[in-house]
Every structure is written in C-alpha cells, then in structure tokens.
Amino acid sequence: MNSTLRLHYQRQLIYAGLDDFNPNSVFPNYLGGESGGNRLAWRREVVNFLDIGVGCGLLAILNWNNLFSPLVLKDVKFALSGNRVSEAGLVDEDIIWNSLYFFGTESLIHDLDRFGLLKWGSLLDTENLKFLDFIQEKYKIELGV
C-alpha cells in the first residue's frame, strides 16, 4: 500500500473513533473522493477499507438490522457492490452507500487514545508509522509499513 493511501487509512480510523460515517464520506480527498474522476477506483478502495475494518474488528456497522435486514451483515463487499435484494424488494446501491453507517469499535477507540490520536486535531497529522505499524500487527492487516 502506498503512503498516500496509508495516510487516508490513518485519518479515517481516527475519524471512526470520533464519529460515525457512511461510505460516501470515506477518503474524501483520495482519487477525488465520491465526485472524483476515478470514482470506480475510489469505491473499490473504500469497500476494501470497510470490509477489512469490519472483518478484523476495527469498525462496526450501525443500523444494518433496522434498515435492510434482520440478519447480521457478514459481507460488506457484497452489500456495497451493486443492487441487493432485501425483504422489502430491491435496494438501490446509492441508498446503501448513503444510509449504511460505520463507527470505531471500543478496541480501536482505546488504541487511538493510547497513541494520543483520539482528537479532531489528529486528522491533520502526518503519517504516524508507530500507530500504523501497531494497527497492522494487532489487527493483521497489510498496510505496507
């Protein structure tokens, strides 16, 4: 993973510890974000980030049970890629991207606090290799640190 994308991961994880967010707000400046010229590549990176984050315990999903299904969401990639059939009929992809919310787990919040990153000002920080290395080791994700 290149350092630019790692910095976006770091900042999004910090944000996740401070507030909830929907997929459209992930990596707002990477590849132009939601409105950028390379929207498909941006969406692919967002889906990977969310899928990995949920899968390894960094992120949790808010409101899935109330919005789309009584079942626990197990496949974030499936939910965010293309139309999905729900009990109420066909749910448009844009509806899911706008109404599905994620937030940082207690474990992530604790880790952010431990590294002094659980504050809004940390969103402006440069890449914190110690934090990213710790996240990579603890959560078994590859950040290329």
Score class of each variant (00 low, 15 high):
I109T: 14
L50N: 00
D113L: 05
C56S: 07
L7C: 00
W97P: 02
R39S: 13
R39P: 03
F21N: 00
L143I: 00
G37N: 15
L59I: 02
R11V: 04
N24T: 08
D133R: 13
M1T: 08
L62M: 13
L143V: 02
L117C: 02
L73E: 12
L132F: 03
R84I: 13
L112P: 01
S81W: 04
Y15H: 10
S35N: 14
S86N: 05
N63C: 05
E127D: 06
D111W: 02
D125N: 11
D125H: 09
M1Q: 04
L129R: 14
F78C: 06
D125S: 13
V46E: 04
L59V: 06
D125W: 05
N29F: 14
K130P: 08
D133P: 04
L100C: 00
V47L: 02
L73P: 00
L62I: 13
D113Y: 06
E87I: 10
G55D: 06
L50H: 05
K140A: 10
R43C: 08
G36F: 03
P28Q: 04
G57E: 03
V54H: 04
S69N: 08
W42F: 05
N48V: 10
L71M: 14
G53S: 02
L31F: 07
G53R: 02
Q136F: 03
N22T: 04
N98T: 09
G33A: 07
R11N: 13
L71Q: 15
N24H: 08
F27Y: 07
R44A: 15
K140D: 09
Y30M: 02
N48G: 04
Y9H: 11
L129H: 09
D51N: 15
L118E: 06
I141D: 00
Y15W: 10
G33P: 09
D94L: 14
R43D: 08
D94R: 11
S81T: 15
K74V: 12
C56P: 04
I14A: 00
D125I: 08
S81Q: 15
V85A: 10
F27G: 00
L100A: 05
N98Q: 14
S107Q: 10
D94V: 15
I52S: 07
D20Y: 11
F27R: 02
V47Y: 05
W64N: 11
D94A: 15
K140C: 06
D19P: 01
R6C: 09
I96A: 07
D94Y: 12
R43H: 07
F134R: 07
V47S: 05
G116C: 03
E127Y: 12
K74N: 14
I14C: 03
N98S: 15
K130L: 14
L117A: 02
I61T: 08
A60K: 15
G36R: 00
L143M: 00
V85I: 11
G32I: 04
L112V: 05
T4W: 09
D94P: 03
K138I: 09
N83H: 12
D111N: 06
R44M: 12
L123F: 06
E137I: 10
L7Y: 05
D92F: 09
L90K: 10
L143F: 00
F131G: 04
